[in-house]
Nucleic acid binder design. Structure first.
Lengths: 122, 122
DNA sequence: ATAATAGTTGCATGATGACACAAATAAGCA
DNA sequence: TGCTTATTTGTGTCATCATGCAACTATTAT
């Protein structure tokens, strides 16, 4: 059974997962969760490889899941700024925000390195 | 035993979550899942800030969760090669594998950028 | 207006995962 | 030998989330 302690440390209020720590350059967990799902990662990789904006139904053809699920995944990536969505008639074109994505991860790498103790060079 | 470095390449057999796509430089989802949990991210940030190896019970003092949970989180990060564990008597010292971590994220950034269409410069 | 197509959203379900607590392991000390 | 401390592991519970399917919205064509 859950104890009282865990109950109110649960902090299930919305958006609590944002902003993890004081170190600048470390992304929040929501952003990382967005790219850590294997299906979303494959969708992202597909869009990166495609080199051009693609519509939802076309993307979905490459995955053994329902279009609605793909749409949800795309929305998650879009909400984190990873993808850009542009509606054109009936279709919605999704594309990768390359510079944004790479800058986040490069910033993460730099944040880690900047704290790296000189002696730790293993 | 756990001072041996690469254990993180071990469970390649069962993990269909391993190796997401054909693009070199994109980490697999298990690695990203390891850093995408908010508690683990805070633990990692704590270790980065600490600038030196810390034992489990000391790390746990900074978080409102049970030591056992912290131990599990540390194991997950260790299994992904993010942390190094060194047993010294009763205690286990955990430290950040800075170069490994930053190289993964820098490689991710480069992988994204290398596929970036020239015109897409925002 | 009706129909058809593209995409999103509501809802139920099964899987995964974080957590607390207890028990087990391991190492040092009386 | 116990006894204490540090850490890991077993187990059950609760929350979150990926998924499928159905319903809904939006846009275009007949």
């Amino acid at each position: 059974m859950m104890t009282q302690i865990s109950k109110h440390l649960k902090k299930t209020q919305k958006g609590e997962d944002r902003g993890c720590c004081g170190i600048p350059g470390i992304p929040d967990s929501r952003f990382l969760k967005a790219v850590s799902d294997s299906t979303r990662l494959r969708i992202l990789a597909h869009l990166v490889e495609a080199q051009e904006p693609q519509i939802v139904s076309e993307i979905a053809k490459n995955f053994p899941i329902d279009v609605s699920v793909v749409s949800r995944h795309l929305a998650i990536l879009r909400n984190e700024g990873i993808l850009l969505a542009e509606k054109q008639g009936k279709e919605v074109y999704y594309s990768v925000r390359y510079e944004f994505l790479s800058s986040i991860f490069r910033g993460f790498a730099s944040a880690i390195e900047s704290c790296c103790p000189p002696k730790e060079r293993k």
